[in-house]
Amino acid sequence: MPKYGMVIDLEKCVGCRACMVACKVENNTPEANYWMYVFRTEEREYPDTKVTFLPRPCQHCDNAPCVKVCPVGARFKREDGLVATDWERCIGCRYCEVACPYGVNSFNYADPKKNQYLDWSDADIESATGGAVPGYANPDLDRKSQLEGRKIAGSNHTKGVVEKCTFCVQKVEKGQNPACAETCPVFAITFGDLDDPESAASRKLKASKTFQLLDDWNTKPRVHYVGTPPGEGAREIERPKTRQTGGV
């Protein structure tokens, strides 16, 4: 059984956020939910400002606090190293979310809006598209996983359940890489079997000095970083819209 992991090279990352977009396209995540999130941070003051980037997928921890606290076993650890969420079993208590020190979980506070990023009925857009609206759902997200036969890829993101990065389990089970790794224009993200010394991820891990996020919290993340982490005083800049709005 492979043990998947990810190596992210911060020295290569240019903070373009293409991985965030690829993740959204592959996983159809709702508005303001980012399974892959890239911090653009700034340290020190002008003129000594230093800008750094930190892509943050789920860390798929081997000692995952979210798995430990889930009251119904909806969040579970797979033998291949992935931390998955069975959205059919999730009761939406958000305990995984408060337990995770990385802030990777998203709760669906409402049913997702279709075609949320563009008003396809707008006259200008309609004149360009001829009224055609592109397909919305990725059918692979609704399939049961091969390993345990549970729905863990996210499906149609119904309200009331928690979701997060799956390492694109629907692609990984087909032998493909997660969308973020496939899309990164500078090859900063390497995914693979960390138990296989010949995998690209293992070779990258072996060849570089790496760190893990919050490694002193004993979560044993399966995501490794090459380079240096943002400093204590790092402040986030250029945030995308991250907060779901609506309701009362």
């Binding site: 979310e97 408060v98 979980n105 009362v248």
Partner: peptide, 24 residues
């Protein structure tokens, strides 16, 4: 009943992390 129909979007609760909220 509003919460059941519309979801917890009708509450002030939001995700911890990028969304800058409190889920509880």
């Amino acid at each position: 009943s509003r919460q059941i129909v519309e979801g917890e979007i009708v509450t002030g609760l939001r995700d911890v992390g990028p969304a800058g909220g409190a889920p509880w």
